[in-house]
Design a protein around this nucleic acid. Structure first.
Lengths: 241, 241
DNA sequence: TCCCTTCACTGGTCTAGACATCTAGCTTAC
DNA sequence: GTAAGCTAGATGTCTAGACCAGTGAAGGGA
């Protein structure tokens, strides 16, 4: 279960094991997990090592410590993740809905000044522009326009644009998103949006504009997503004033 | 400098001391701070204790660790705060505008079920309801309805409701906000909103609903703010995917 | 001159303990 | 009955070491 000779730190192996316990339903939400001393004995590691693993999972919002009582599996992990940085696909799955996409447009163009500045490239460089309707349980939820720098996405094909771009990035290219800046604003649906989202012209739209960065600080996507105001609510948590 | 007999944990005292070093300019942004072993010797505490203090400051985004190199003071601490939780007044000041309020309503009522559940009180308990128009450079920007539990705000008067409630909380009551949950949605202006914000009925509205908590975890305000969609944009940064 | 090895110093991980503090439930004294 | 006090067991804090792994600079050899 735990390999002390592995180059992977013990506390990390413990984290993975504990996540698995929760995923397998062996540790249930709201219930206490074994005490630090029990885990320490079970795996023949020091209590400090167990504590480091626990601290990380508390940090991730998966566990909850109560002094004098024990360590508990947090309820509604859903909302916690929601508060972070999630793709449309992930977010809908977390809300218990089935995400789907309709590809409207897939082309390689040269970046306009706005897109170029957001992606930190020159205006003569190429970008993919992908327009998709996003559905949850087959109901249109949002219309999305994504700009991706061609030099990062190279041989991407139309087929790759049907699913989660984040998944594509991580599995096919080994790239991981690190942080993002978002603007959120309210506006009214124009005729094009109204048609795609099957709403009336002038209906409320919640538009989220996101620039996402890799761990290296390189911007890798600039996305504008227009959500139906009657069906979508952006949920958000802020800590430490 | 560090009191080992104090009930305050040593690592916490170290954190405070290190923050002070930065504030006093003794530790400069981008520069390395003394090594863990040096600090450990200087304060005659174990290295693990120093590491706990450092870990917390890294978590807060104040320090940055580089393996093999040292621990560094992070640049741009300011932006960190900006991205966090700000009041309308603060936010407008940061945007270079002058905030003002028009008090529409100030009353003490018993909490309705929604408000009671958000503030973790009973439906027969009293709350203040404050309705204000928020102006930036004398232009209406938002209409705000705030609910504050009476047991926390005791002798608050109408006059206190003209300025920043966060300032009032901190200076008069010594209470500090710790975290908040926010819902953001798009909707259309009704006649009342349209009148207060001097916009047309059916104009886009960005509505932010916030429940804010003290360090103790006690909710202390439930606020619904309706921003003019044509003048306001919510700015937001997310890290750590 | 240039490259490569060595070395000192950094943070990263881990141990096997210790005592403090908090909680809930049981027990005892009134 | 009930309130106070005790206790077992939980996390919180802390120590004084150990060895590993990454970094950069100094020094030596071709």
């Amino acid at each position: 279960m735990i390999n002390k000779q592995s180059p992977v730190p013990i506390y990390f192996q413990l984290e993975e094991w504990m996540k698995q316990q929760i995923e397998d339903g062996k540790w249930k939400a709201g219930r206490a997990i074994p005490s630090e001393r029990e885990l320490s004995e079970q795996f023949k590691v020091s209590r400090m090592t167990v504590r480091q693993a626990l601290a990380n999972l508390v940090q991730e919002g998966i566990l909850l410590k109560k002094k004098g009582l024990g360590t508990f599996v947090k309820e509604q992990k859903l909302e916690q993740v929601l508060l972070g940085l999630t793709s449309f696909s992930e977010e809908m799955l977390k809300r218990g809905m089935t995400p789907k996409s309709i590809l409207i447009n897939f082309e390689k163009i040269t970046a306009n000044p706005l897109v170029a500045s957001q992606l930190a490239i020159h205006t003569n460089e190429e970008v993919f522009r992908i327009e998709r309707i996003r559905l949850a349980d087959d109901v249109p939820m949002a219309f999305e326009t994504a700009y991706l720098p061609a030099h990062l996405f190279g041989e991407m094909t139309k087929e790759d644009a049907y699913g989660s771009l984040y998944d594509y990035l991580q599995t096919q290219k080994g790239l991981k998103i690190q942080e993002a800046k978002q603007d959120i604003e309210a506006l009214l649906a124009d005729t094009r949006l109204a048609e795609f989202l099957q709403i009336k012209v002038g209906a409320p739209i919640l538009q989220i504009t996101r620039t996402a960065y890799l761990q290296t600080g390189t911007p890798f996507e600039y996305v504008r997503t227009a959500f139906r105001g009657d069906r979508y609510r952006f949920n958000h948590q802020v800590t430490r004033y």
